[in-house]
Amino acid sequence: MSTAVMSELSGATVEPARSWTPSRVVAGAGLAVLVAFAVVGPLVLADPHAQDLARFLEPPSLAEPLGRDDYGRSVVSRLAHATRLSLVLGAVCVLTALVLGTATGILAGWVGGWVDAVLRGLSEAFVAIPALLVVLLVSAMAPEGSLLTLYVGLALVQWVEYFRVVRARAALVLGTPAVEAAGLLRLGRWHVLRRHLWPELRPVLLTLASLGMVTSILAMSTLGFVKVGLQPPRAELGLMTTEAFPFYDAAPWLALAPVSVLFLLTACLLGLRPKEVAR
């Protein structure tokens, strides 16, 4: 009898194939469409700030698939710009946090000693502070609607998560017999990094990154919604939702457009995560 059958019999979960499940394919396709919209839209569509008060709350038509808002601005164009803003800012925040958190996490796990102690102390304090709080505080210091403060706030909040996860995993991996054996075989740090740490960290980082994108995008729009983030007339998903809310009865498409994009973005990003391996 093969070992595969045995492990199945003993009730052990077999590692799921790293293939593209149908739900991941759908999520990937959806995200691709949204990205294409965000990249191509702003290039071909009208100026999102061009007002035309004569066309106040114009309903959707062929020329304007999503109609016009209370200033007579093109909603589809504003939506494209808002989507691009969300994706770009989210990606930049996640990338910064990922690089910073992973580097410090591996450093702390490997070097140990006081470096580890200092970094861990800092992360202990940061992890208890809700992300939104830090972003709120940081965004309070800048002139209204500064992208830079939003970026700094979001990245500052998120590096901790990467740091904590990477440090914990790295310490675990570095303590395994496999790494001990690599040391006895004199294989060097590059081998440990490439063969032991990276394969172990890659799926976790991918999951964290897609979650981080969601966090960034939602935090951005939430701040816009409570009016302390980016300021009008910038096209931003949360702001657009707030601005459209008074007209939900007269012009439901106005609120529906940013809300659906937001929902689709988060749903696709969440759906794209690799299934966490059991354990």
Partner: peptide, 30 residues
Amino acid sequence: GRVQKLYQDPALSFPAHVPLGAGIGDVARR
């Protein structure tokens, strides 16, 4: 590297996500 060790659970003494040949190849090259 002229002291070597064999472990009780050999599965834990190899990097879990790397084909065995790649790991052994690293050792042979080194």
